[in-house]
Design a protein around this nucleic acid. Structure first.
Length: 202
DNA sequence: CGGAAGATTTCT
DNA sequence: GAAATCTTCCGA
């Protein structure tokens, strides 16, 4: 699995390296795993879109102030969990939101968890993949250099196969909403669906 | 202590 | 296009 050192870097660097890697959850019912195909970097104190903007430290953001390689979980809109990877050294509260996976292992369990037989619909969104992989608030702060939940080397994605776009649903973040800190694997079918929100035309 | 809003998903 | 649903944060 990826070691501690891998995570102790700038979130934007770690994010690009995480594309193509395998997120693995060891559950009582078996192994559930998927390849990371889409994610977003949140850069902490200087990033108006980040929960840790201006070094806001609270019971929710606390884990981001430790060193990288731990899970940051939170509930959004009162109903969906999101899984994030904490990065960089202690006191640099950066994190990466994992937005989509390509199902690899435990697909039958995923289908049951998601109540859907459509492979595309199992993990193509941050809330969906948490449901499919049985990840929730109980995994807050868990060490990704441990057995239960970890990330394995799998594929390496070359720069020319990485697409960078603005992040999704952070219109409140001022100029930070335009930063190209969302990354996904070019042409991958399991990337989350484009927002149906109005997009400013060129 | 009250209120508002959210790093989303699903159904109509 | 809008509802579902509740934690978190901020201001009073």
């Amino acid at each position: 699995m990826l070691n501690r050192q891998f995570y102790l870097r700038d979130a934007n660097l770690v994010a690009k390296d995480l594309l193509g890697k395998l997120l693995v959850h060891n559950t009582q019912n078996g192994i559930i795993a998927g390849m990371i195909v889409e994610l977003e970097a949140y850069m902490g104190a200087e990033d108006a879109a980040a929960h840790s903007y201006k070094n806001l430290r609270s019971s929710r953001t606390e884990v981001q102030f430790g060193e990288g390689g731990f899970a940051y979980m939170y509930l959004i809109y009162g109903m969906h969990y999101c899984f994030n990877v904490v990065t960089n050294v202690a006191n640099k509260p950066e994190a990466i939101l994992i937005r989509a996976l390509e199902p690899v292992d435990g697909i039958e369990i995923m289908k049951k968890n998601r109540k859907s037989d459509n492979l595309i619909n199992l993990c193509n969104g941050p809330g969906k993949l948490c449901s499919a992989l049985e990840i929730n608030k109980s995994h807050y702060g868990i060490d990704l250099c441990g057995n239960e939940l970890h990330i394995d080397a799998y594929q390496n994605v070359a720069n020319e196969n990485i697409v960078a776009t603005p992040r999704v649903n952070i219109d409140y973040a001022g100029e930070a909403k335009d930063y190209l800190w969302r990354y996904y694997i070019k042409g991958n079918k399991f990337v989350s669906k484009p927002s149906t929100k109005k997009v400013k035309s060129i």
